[in-house]
């Protein structure tokens, strides 16, 4: 028997409660900033965030009911997008800067000490200014983040096993409930119907920018790894390698 369906408000409440805590680097970044110690700090922080991301995903209502294969694939596909939308959310009130954590924020010139990073930095800052322009609400933000997770591995053809097919139909239903919750959150802003549809389109268009920046970031991280620029921690390394496998 399926548990009683959650109302959009209840679903948003649960997704809000799933939010990870603020994550601190806990070590001052070594100065002067060099490519190596910026990358060291960013990868250290990312590895911590990944641990919290997995427990966040498990708290998204319905996620753990999906097949383990789908859970693994989704997280491997979208992890950097989820990190990036969180970064944008933290940076929304700091134009021109990226607030990686309360104790690690970088300006453009500080970021430019990492070869190839400034292009990604600029894309993230541009996307963040779009988020500021749209006055993204927290309810909308948590719905978008959940959609990034649930929408991430549509491109992967899963085996046609019956449990995989069952998991896929569960996934599509779950994605629709989060879409309903996002529509509900937008409707709360008191916009006319036409303005609501337009806002929904604007928010969903953000997701394609985030996917693009994430792919650029993944390539950059991969080439940092190939250059042995930075020691990658086990979870981050695993997620990077898995993403490369999926996208190749």
């Amino acid at each position: 028997l399926n548990p009683p369906a959650l109302t959009p408000e209840q679903l948003i409440q649960q997704i809000m409660e799933a939010e990870p805590p603020e994550i601190y680097l806990m070590k001052d970044i070594r100065r002067p900033l060099t490519e190596a110690n910026v990358m060291m700090s960013l990868t250290n922080l990312a590895d911590k965030e990944l641990v919290h991301m997995i427990s966040w995903a498990k708290k998204i209502p319905g996620f753990v009911e999906l097949s383990l294969l789908d859970q693994v694939h989704m997280l491997e596909c979208c992890w950097l997008e989820v990190l990036m939308i969180g970064l944008m959310w933290r940076s929304v009130n700091h134009p021109g800067k990226l607030i990686f954590s309360p104790d690690l924020s970088l300006s453009r010139e500080e970021g430019s000490c990492v070869q190839g990073f400034v292009e990604i930095f600029d894309m993230l800052v541009a996307a963040t200014s779009r988020v500021r322009e749209l006055k993204l609400q927290r309810e909308e933000y948590v719905c978008l983040k959940a959609m990034i997770l649930l929408n991430s591995n549509m491109c992967l053809t899963s085996s046609e096993g019956s449990d995989e097919l069952q998991s896929r139909s569960k996934l599509l239903r779950l994605l629709d409930t989060v879409t309903d919750a996002l529509v509900w959150a937008i409707a709360k802003t008191g916009l006319t119907f036409r303005q609501q549809y337009t806002r929904l389109a604007h928010l969903l268009m953000l997701l394609s920018h985030i996917r693009h920046v994430s792919n650029k970031g993944m390539d950059h991280l991969h080439c940092m790894k190939m250059k042995n620029m930075v020691p990658l921690y086990d979870l981050l390394l695993e997620m990077l390698d898995a993403h490369i496998v999926h996208s190749s």
Binding site: I54, K58, L68, V72, D234, L235, A242
Partner: peptide
């Protein structure tokens, strides 16, 4: 996928 699977399959605290 050792680390990811391990974190996915551990019961929430």
């Amino acid at each position: 996928h050792t680390k990811l699977l391990q974190l996915l399959t551990t019961k929430p605290e």
